[in-house]
């Protein structure tokens, strides 16, 4: 399947669903994902006229309407001629995967989506036509760890990283049938794709026992103290593990860690120093891109001094 360039033809060019967070608080993730893709010779084609995946606002009130919204994005990908859509946000990735699962397993959901599609004048998406992947899958499958290692121009050597995957990348397990399939597949108990990619870029991954633990993200506004306590424990544990940086792969996790790091200092008086960076920002710098190019200056967690001291960016 691999071409001479070492890039998998299946993932060289995929449909791109950034989702709304990547146009707002997660802008640096959008920027760094696109920059890494370009540096690796991969093509991302943004879905035309995409809509919200239903996120948590719609899903919490009417899950079948959320399924319709996610399914519409899958249908757009299909109409554009793609069999694969890449969603870097854990929430979007999760919702598209859930839509796929529900459409394949629940006739009532299928019926609602068909009805809403007809009302909207859209073709209803049929399950099984488009596969949703995460940015981690995309880079790992398209380039591979060896391919990435060969392209590293500025090793992350000496940088100690705790990889935080959050919850929606692996839970609930039944909507991710491709995971837990043995060697080479992602694990829902102990995910490792981000660890693998950053290790290939030269980083030293620390053992982090809370890589999928709850950050209280969905309740960050309604119950801020619970979120702050949970995030503070994620941060202090990363520091106890010796991490300089927590790598993230979701804009919601990323903002939650950054905002509650600041809130923990203000409300509980507990200051933590670990930096928070998107894994795509770290990979981008390893590929020789500047810190600015991958949007490090857009992060609330200011890692610029640390990166300069390590000769990165």
């Amino acid at each position: 399947m691999s071409e001479k360039s070492g890039i998998s033809s299946k993932y060289r060019k995929v449909a791109y669903y950034p989702g709304c967070a990547l146009e707002g608080t997660g802008h640096a993730y959008n920027r760094s994902t696109k920059a890494v893709g370009k540096a690796l010779g991969l093509d991302l084609v943004e879905l035309k006229n995409w809509n919200c995946c239903g996120a948590m606002e719609v899903k919490n009130i009417d899950p079948k309407l959320q399924t319709f919204l996610s399914a519409r994005n899958l249908e757009i990908a299909e109409e554009m001629g793609f069999a694969t859509v890449m969603a870097p946000c854990n929430g979007c990735y999760h919702n598209l995967k859930k839509a796929e699962y529900d459409l394949a397993h629940d006739p009532a959901t299928r019926e609602t989506v068909e009805m809403l599609s007809a009302k909207a004048g859209d073709v209803a998406y049929q399950p099984g036509h488009v596969s949703t992947i995460h940015a981690l899958d995309w880079i790992r499958e398209a380039i591979g760890e060896e391919g990435l290692r060969a392209r590293v121009r500025n090793s992350l050597k000496g940088l100690k990283i705790a990889n935080y995957y959050g919850c929606m990348y692996t839970r609930p397990r039944h909507i991710f049938p491709e995971k837990d399939q043995g060697p080479g597949s992602e694990s829902t108990n102990a995910p490792h794709f981000m660890d693998d990619l950053l290790a290939a870029a030269g980083a030293e991954n620390v053992e982090y026992p809370l890589k999928t633990a709850c950050c209280g993200g969905a309740h960050t506004l309604s119950d801020s103290d619970t979120s702050t306590r949970l995030v503070l424990n994620l941060l202090t544990t990363a520091e106890a593990c010796g991490a300089d940086v927590i790598a993230t792969e979701c804009p919601t996790c990323h903002s939650g860690l950054e905002l509650h790091q600041a809130r923990a200092a203000k409300v509980f008086g507990t200051v933590t120093h670990v930096k928070i960076l998107y894994f795509t920002q770290l990979l981008g710098m390893a590929l020789g891109l500047s810190a600015r190019r991958v949007g490090v200056h857009e992060n609330l967690s200011d890692a610029r001094d640390l990166l300069r001291a390590r000769g990165l960016g």
């Binding site: 899903k59 899950p63 839970r171 609930p172 969905a218 309604s222 619970t226």
Partner: peptide, 24 residues
Amino acid sequence: LFVAGKLENAGLGEFCCSARDLRG
């Protein structure tokens, strides 16, 4: 911390980890 949070706010983990709606 998680269990204490969930005792106060039953919806913790509901939307994300079980992919269920909070209000329905």
